[in-house]
């Protein structure tokens, strides 16, 4: 190892780096479990209301454009690939490709948010946002569908935003701080988070955009 590489930070509570790494990894997985339960509450509501209002779901999903949803799925899957490659680069101690892939991931995430912005603004223009101004007041199933659509995609979008912030912070730190370049743990953890955000979307896309008939 070259001489300029400094020692990694070991928390005072840990005995060695292995213990530290394993603790962080398990902590992240448990955090993801809490996220599963968090979205799980909404998915439960989705299942129950879809069974109650099958018609409303079919009518409601016509307000969504499956092409835009598909585009966003493509974007997120690609960003998962770049994220995985960034983690790989970090593990192999190649910080330049790591930064490159992280930047790609952030750009793709922005792309996702831009598509989302156009989708949302269209719905506000057409008054298919739940509330007193909802255009199809006679169809409660449709309004519930749109309510769940906004709750689910809104929370998911919020997670994407958090991801953008954290990935950007790590990218900047990797560029500016030599010491950070050795430490693949932050990249690996945010990678796990990012893949989880991708998985949520993998379910949201067919559940919201691809309802037959």
């Amino acid at each position: 190892m070259s001489a300029h590489e400094q020692e990694l930070h070991l928390g005072h509570q840990f005995e060695d780096l292995k213990q530290q790494i394993e603790s962080y990894t398990i902590g992240m997985w448990i955090f993801l479990v809490t996220e599963v339960m968090f979205f799980g509450g909404l998915f439960t509501a989705y299942i129950i209301y879809r069974a109650k209002f099958p018609e409303g779901w079919v009518h409601g999903h016509h307000h969504l454009d499956w092409r835009l949803g598909g585009l966003n799925t493509l974007i997120l899957l690609t960003s998962s690939l770049t994220m995985a490659l960034a983690v790989r680069a970090a593990m192999l101690n190649k910080w330049k490709p790591q930064v490159l892939f992280l930047v790609c991931t952030v750009l793709l995430a922005f792309g996702f948010m831009i598509v989302k912005y156009f989708e949302y603004s269209k719905k506000f223009r057409e008054h298919i946002v739940p509330g007193p101004l909802f255009a199809h007041k006679d169809d409660p199933g449709q309004e519930l569908f749109m309510g769940l659509y906004f709750a689910l995609t809104g929370l998911h979008g919020f997670h994407v935003l958090i991801g953008i912030l954290v990935i950007s912070a790590i990218t900047i730190r990797t560029i500016n701080m030599r010491r950070m370049r050795q430490d693949f743990i932050p990249v690996e953890l945010v990678g796990l988070y990012w893949h989880f955000v991708d998985i949520v979307w993998i379910f949201l896309y067919p559940l919201l955009y691809l309802i037959s008939k």
Binding site: S80, L81, M83, A84, G191, L192, H195, F196, D198, I199, I202, F203
Partner: peptide, 10 residues
Amino acid sequence: KTVLVVLFFM
């Protein structure tokens, strides 16, 4: 898809 992501990306 989830299994693929969990096994090969995560």
